[in-house]
Design a binder for these strands. Structure first.
Lengths: 110, 110
DNA sequence: TAGCTATATAACCATATGGATATATGCTAC
DNA sequence: GTAGCATATATCCATATGGTTATATAGCTA
């Protein structure tokens, strides 16, 4: 799991890659579409995509001539789970909210 | 803000640095205390601490002979906020929960 | 002041990263 | 099967990163 976090955080450390994820939040996109906003060569984008894919943040599809990418949410959830352990340090209402939710019927507060 | 995220994610990409944050979650600690669990030289730890500090994840204090470090929660909140934008992709109950909380009196759901 | 403790900085090294250009591969269309 | 499009891979380069050892700095203690 530590290795996963290494790869995920490392992938997220680059603004181009975060922007690519942002684009993929709107749905799948081809490499050309993902490359469009940037003044980078196509191989540079392919490299970024490889980093994202190896971190498990995206997945490659197969569609006729192209290989569209889609978001892979699990890796992002890994980040959310990691950072949630620190939530009490900044969110003073966390404990109160947590208590509250645990009393609400039908809500699974794990 | 993008620069901040670069530095923060980059700092978090190293397991030694994440372990240091984990230790600091238990309260402030000196450099020697932070170095203790690792088979790394003292300068290596100092370097890691510098990276964490420049990312805003920790802060240095002054105490007699030593310079204890403490957690700086704001940077971690920055991560939480960033990743929260993607929450809908993995958490199917997010929308429902969000709706629910917005109706609850006295709870600020920002 | 001298020595000890805690930490920082300097210099160096090997490997990783992010970019480029050139070329290869795999489909599609003719 | 040849051409063209979309994407991947190879090679190369400059800079960044993470480690080391050696040394400097700052505060405490005798």
């Amino acid at each position: 799991m530590d290795d996963k976090l290494d790869a995920i955080f490392s992938a997220l450390a680059d603004p181009t890659r975060r922007a690519i994820l942002g684009r993929l939040a709107n749905g799948k996109a081809t490499v050309a579409e993902l490359a469009d906003p940037f003044e980078l060569s196509q191989p540079a984008i392919s490299k970024h995509l490889k980093v994202l894919e190896q971190a498990g943040l995206i997945r490659s599809g197969r569609e006729a001539n192209s290989r569209p990418r889609v978001l892979e949410p699990a890796a992002l959830k890994t980040v959310a789970d990691w950072v949630a352990d620190y939530r009490r340090f900044w969110d003073q209402s966390f404990d109160r909210l947590d208590d509250y939710l645990s009393k609400v019927q039908g809500y699974d507060n794990d």
